[in-house]
Design a binder for these strands. Structure first.
Lengths: 189, 189
DNA sequence: CCGTTCATGTAATCTGTTACATGATTTA
DNA sequence: TAAATCATGTAACAGATTACATGAACGG
């Protein structure tokens, strides 16, 4: 369901499935990814539903493209979704499940190694997000509070991206410190 | 795939599908939920695969239960998963997608209302987690650093739960402050 | 006897991934 | 002429939700 609405939302101006995939990958893809093989059938379904309408167009290269645009009914559906309140409570985080079950290994050094890898991945992601912000700040002298409205909403999610990584880093560090303390105590016994 | 391994991990002692669902809901369900209608077929598949074995047992009430226990092959699979490093990068957060696209509404007061609802949900969740921690601390005088190993791993994920909610609250507050500032500026124009 | 709890499942549907198939155009 | 880019799709499978169906036993 969400992908339907996301595609609708990305169609501020007409675009093809291929272009939508690129747009998705750039920003929104960090919290809702989708493959082309899912996007194409979804667009067709949305057209049958009357939320989109399509026409053929010439491609920059290669064969023709199918360009979609949103219909009034599509606008209404998108509007309803956006005003229906936040969809919370269905986060799936496999790595937390792994930690939850990790006493199975009975070896805190393995837990420590796990956190160390996790920390590196989080840290990498934070660097990427900071670079996005830097590029943005260079292009717009009014960054962050004089930005135009559309960018402002996107920037709110970028801020969350960064703050979430910082919080994860802190948690990793705290956890690793506590694991090391336990290992030391075990060693003394 | 993850649910397979999670069920395996929860089977530290033999249990039925119904019991596994209850265990899941208690702790791990916050980051990986599953319905009974998914659990039952999954258990059957895992038995065919040789990772589990089952036997009939009497139920406390009602008809008989099917009780599962993990096999050596199952243990190896679980072990491999836990030592294969963190599975990161596939978080799906619909509410972030909603915010990302919310300039569609062209009305910051609606964005503000959205954040306000989100903040309330996050705050509620934080209260729940703090209560879990309080109960835990009351039961175990050695909480949090003298806890037995199995509980320690679970507690690491509880800590993340709380810290994540705190970070979200901060982000909500920062966002709401910035939205209000923009609204004031708009009003002056 | 009625509601709740314990207990197991199937069927239909939806959502998402991986692998495969195709082909034109541009650039090196 | 080979690789990269633009472009669209299908098929098979895996993962997950919702709805439906069944039934015993216990507490009030």
């Amino acid at each position: 369901m969400s992908l339907d609405l996301i595609l609708l939302g990305l169609l501020r101006s007409p675009a093809s499935g291929f272009e939508l995939k690129a747009t998705l990958d750039q920003g929104i893809g960090h919290f809702w990814a989708a493959e082309l093989s899912q996007i194409y059938p979804t667009l067709k379904r949305l057209e049958r539903k009357g939320w989109l309408r399509s026409r053929h167009a010439a491609a920059k290269r290669g064969a023709g493209r199918r360009v979609y645009e949103i219909t009034p009914a599509g606008h209404r559906a998108l509007h309803d979704w956006l005003t229906s309140g936040p969809r919370v409570g269905d986060e799936r985080l496999a790595y937390l499940a792994q930690i939850y079950l990790m006493d199975e290994l009975g070896d805190l050094r393995k837990t420590l190694a796990f956190f160390s890898t996790l920390r590196e991945a989080v840290s990498q992601r934070l660097r990427e997000l900071r670079q996005v912000e830097r590029r943005w700040a260079e292009l717009d002298p009014d960054y962050p509070d004089g930005m135009p409205l559309p960018d402002f909403h996107v920037q709110l999610t970028l801020r969350w991206g960064m703050q979430a990584q910082v919080a994860k880093l802190r948690w990793c560090d705290e956890s690793m410190r506590r694991i090391r303390a336990r290992l030391k105590k075990e060693g003394r016994k």
